[in-house]
């Protein structure tokens, strides 16, 4: 069993988890990685990845994973769905949603962390809906309205009909997948992971 704590306050194992989840969110956007329901509905699963980062890494690690990904995207690497990258994505209409990933992942993680060692499926789903949809929309919608010049009310209505159903499905799936993952790998619960880090620090 690895000893994950460093002497300098920032656990080495966390660096690896943050990087791997940032990479996982990127990989979920690669073509052919995963197409929902055979090939009929082309949905980007990157927000699904953001929710998973939140539920599994916990608040600030998840936010850091998203930050690392966005920095690499801003630097020009094509890590967003459809091979998008570069500063252009932060100038377009969906820029707010990308920025919203940061607090979105953090809030998702925060809600899961309040659930202690055995966060229930309902809590996980609520976390994904509140953090992964609510918070992301909260940042994304006003930016979208500002960039496009379409009034906020109409933007909200449009997004609600176009994206909300898909996002709700993703949130529920993320909760189910998190539950399954935590059953197979208990250390996937943020509280359990933190406790083990503390235990190995003392030991």
């Amino acid at each position: 069993m690895p000893r994950l704590t460093g002497g300098k306050g920032f656990p080495t194992g966390d660096i690896a988890r943050i990087s791997v989840f940032a990479a996982l969110i990127a990989a979920l956007g690669l073509p052919g990685t995963l197409n929902l329901f055979g090939n009929t509905v082309p949905i980007t699963l990157q927000t699904f990845g953001v929710m998973l980062a939140g539920t599994i890494l916990g608040s600030w690690r998840a936010a850091l994973a998203v930050a690392v990904l966005l920095v690499l995207v801003a630097a020009g690497l094509p890590l967003l769905a459809g091979g998008r990258g570069g500063l252009g994505v932060f100038a377009g209409a969906s820029a707010g949603y990308l920025i919203g990933w940061l607090p979105g992942a953090a809030v998702t993680g925060w809600i899961v962390e309040r659930g202690g060692h055995h966060p229930g499926i309902v809590r996980l789903a609520v976390a994904c809906v509140v953090g992964g949809i609510g918070v992301i929309y909260l940042v994304g919608l006003p930016v979208q309205a500002a960039v496009t010049g379409v009034p906020l009310g109409r933007t909200v209505l449009l997004s609600a009909t176009l994206f909300l159903p898909g996002d709700l499905i993703k949130a529920v799936l993320a909760a189910i997948v998190t539950k399954g993952t935590q059953r197979a790998y208990p250390d996937a619960v943020p509280a359990v992971h933190r406790e083990r880090l503390r235990a190995s620090k003392e030991g």
């Binding site: 000893r3 994950l4 194992g13 966390d14 690896a16």
Partner: peptide, 9 residues
Amino acid sequence: ADALGEALS
């Protein structure tokens, strides 16, 4: 990720 963390150590 956890194997990677171990390797970093």
